[in-house]
Each structure stands twice: as C-alpha cells, then as structure tokens.
Amino acid sequence: MAGWRVHRGTVLGLPVANIDTDQLIPARFMSVPRAEGYGSYLLHDMRRDEAGELRAGFPLNTHSEVSVILAGRNFGSGSSREAAVYALVDAGIRAVIAPSFGDIFASNAVNNSLLPAKVDDESYVALEASLAKGPQDVIIDIDTRTVTVGAAKIGFVLDDSWAMKLINGWDDIDLTRNHGGAIAAFKRTRSQTAGWAWPTAKE
C-alpha cells in the first residue's frame, strides 16, 4: 500500500446523508474477486438504470476525473463489507469528506489508503454550497488536516494513528508480527488465567 500526504484532484458534492454500504455496493456484486476491479459497481443502483446503463443526470457519471467526494452525515453506515471501500478506491476516489462516518467503514477506508475526512457541520454546509454548481479543484493535506477548495481552507479531523498509517502506507500485519513475543506471552497467561476461553472439544 502506497502512502500519501497531499492529494491534488477534483471534489464532487454528493450531499446525501446515510449513503450506506448497500448503496455503495449492492450485495449481488460481492462475490467478484478483487482482481477484476470493483470501480464499475460503485453506487451502482444510483448511477445506473434498470438496464445497467449510466444515468446521464448523475454527476459522478459525467465527471470521471473526480477523486474526492463530499457526502452527507453517516457515510458508509451499515455493513462491514470492505467491498464498499474497494468500489470507491477502484473508481479512483482517494478521500471522502463527510460530517460523520460509519465506524467500520472508516477503519476499512484507512486500511486501503482512502482518507475518511471528518468535518464539522458548518464546514460541510460551506463546502456543499461551493460545490453546488459542479466539481472543483481540491487540495487535501493530511499533515495539516486541511481541505482547500478555491480560496477556502477548512480543517478536518483524523485520528493520529490513522494519519500515520495513511502517510506511511503501513500494513498492520507487518507491524504486528514484530510483537510476536508479546502475543505469545499473552496467550500463555490467558490460557492459565482463563482456560474457559478455549473451546472444549466437540463431543
């Protein structure tokens, strides 16, 4: 996973609240191996008509250059399906800006280099207004936790540990394997103090 600090791209306003994981990627596409790419399933039923054709009026369809989405509160609520993040990432999205995120979605996002940038309600309203006419150029800086659109610079909130991970492109499995000794010691103690935590053999 490649890390990043600054992203220059295009931000699109999708000012809808509660865009849940079932909307981000309907369940029927989730059996596809990742290698085949998930980008075309992003917001599938919003973007496409019953015949699977792209709807002309849907902004994401007319602006393929979009790399950042501004969305309403509670973005990514619902299921733990990481496929919702794959769909965004494979469609070229690097960051989502919203007033709040589903907890599991946000951690899945960070695990895939997608930034969940949380902004306060006031900033959300201001950004939404500036994007009402169409997508704009945007600069996102993880170090300074800022989003710049035109002359406006607004701050976002991001857990420090997540910022480190996004910047360095860290992979948790590698990090954790450095703690192998501590894990083995923990397991030994737990098996002595809470033996009931191990399943009894099937009868």
Binding site: S80, E82, D103, S107, N111, S161, I173, T176
Partner: peptide
Amino acid sequence: FGIGATEVAHVLATQTVWQRKP
C-alpha cells in the same frame, strides 16, 4: 464487533486486532 476484510486477514494471521477503545 464486526471488522472489515483487511482486519479479518490480520486476525487470521495473528489472532489479534488493533483497536482504539470506544
């Protein structure tokens, strides 16, 4: 608690999970 695929892979490989206490 539920986790995403990257975390599932992590639990499979290490039997542990990184979490900030809610």
